[in-house]
Protein backbone atom coordinates (compact mmCIF):
# COMPACT_ATOMS: atom_id res chain seq x y z
CA UNK A 1 0.00 0.00 0.00
CA UNK A 2 1.75 3.15 -1.19
CA UNK A 3 0.85 6.46 -2.74
CA UNK A 4 -0.70 4.67 -5.71
CA UNK A 5 -2.72 2.58 -3.28
CA UNK A 6 -4.03 4.99 -0.65
CA UNK A 7 -6.17 3.80 2.23
CA UNK A 8 -9.11 5.77 0.81
CA UNK A 9 -9.75 5.89 -2.96
CA UNK A 10 -11.90 9.01 -2.88
CA UNK A 11 -9.37 11.29 -1.19
CA UNK A 12 -9.44 13.78 -4.07
CA UNK A 13 -13.20 13.58 -4.52
CA UNK A 14 -15.85 15.57 -2.70
CA UNK A 15 -16.41 15.26 1.03
CA UNK A 16 -19.64 13.41 0.33
CA UNK A 17 -17.92 10.84 -1.89
CA UNK A 18 -15.09 10.30 0.59
CA UNK A 19 -17.45 9.99 3.55
CA UNK A 20 -19.56 7.54 1.51
CA UNK A 21 -16.48 5.40 0.96
CA UNK A 22 -15.85 5.36 4.71
CA UNK A 23 -19.49 4.53 5.37
CA UNK A 24 -19.47 1.70 2.83
CA UNK A 25 -16.39 0.21 4.41
CA UNK A 26 -18.06 0.26 7.81
CA UNK A 27 -21.45 -0.85 6.49
CA UNK A 28 -23.24 2.11 8.00
CA UNK A 29 -25.21 5.11 6.82
CA UNK A 30 -23.67 8.37 7.96
CA UNK A 31 -25.92 11.28 8.92
CA UNK A 32 -25.25 14.43 6.89
CA UNK A 33 -23.79 16.08 10.00
CA UNK A 34 -20.87 13.66 9.89
CA UNK A 35 -19.82 14.09 6.28
CA UNK A 36 -17.46 17.06 6.44
CA UNK A 37 -15.75 15.93 9.64
CA UNK A 38 -15.35 12.33 8.53
CA UNK A 39 -13.90 13.42 5.20
CA UNK A 40 -11.45 15.81 6.88
CA UNK A 41 -10.32 13.11 9.28
CA UNK A 42 -9.96 10.55 6.49
CA UNK A 43 -7.64 12.94 4.64
CA UNK A 44 -5.68 13.53 7.87
CA UNK A 45 -5.27 9.80 8.38
CA UNK A 46 -3.95 9.40 4.84
CA UNK A 47 -1.42 12.16 5.59
CA UNK A 48 -0.24 10.21 8.64
CA UNK A 49 -0.01 7.00 6.61
CA UNK A 50 2.22 8.81 4.13
CA UNK A 51 4.42 10.05 6.98
CA UNK A 52 4.63 6.59 8.50
CA UNK A 53 5.68 5.19 5.15
CA UNK A 54 8.33 7.86 4.74
CA UNK A 55 6.76 9.26 1.60
CA UNK A 56 7.69 12.82 0.65
CA UNK A 57 4.96 15.27 1.65
Amino acid sequence: MDREHPIFVELRSTDAQLAAEVADRLGVVLPPACIAGVAANARLLQWHVDVLRGLPR
Binding site: I7, F8, E21, V22, R25, L26, L30, A33, C34, A36, G37, V38, A40, N41, A42, L44, L45
Partner: peptide, 12 residues
Protein backbone atom coordinates in the same frame (compact mmCIF):
# COMPACT_ATOMS: atom_id res chain seq x y z
CA UNK B 1 -19.15 15.69 16.84
CA UNK B 2 -15.45 16.42 17.31
CA UNK B 3 -14.89 12.94 18.72
CA UNK B 4 -17.37 11.13 16.52
CA UNK B 5 -15.92 12.05 13.16
CA UNK B 6 -12.39 11.14 14.24
CA UNK B 7 -13.58 7.77 15.53
CA UNK B 8 -15.61 6.99 12.40
CA UNK B 9 -12.68 7.71 10.10
CA UNK B 10 -10.36 5.70 12.35
CA UNK B 11 -12.68 2.72 12.29
CA UNK B 12 -12.20 2.57 8.51
Amino acid sequence: PMTRDRLIAGAA
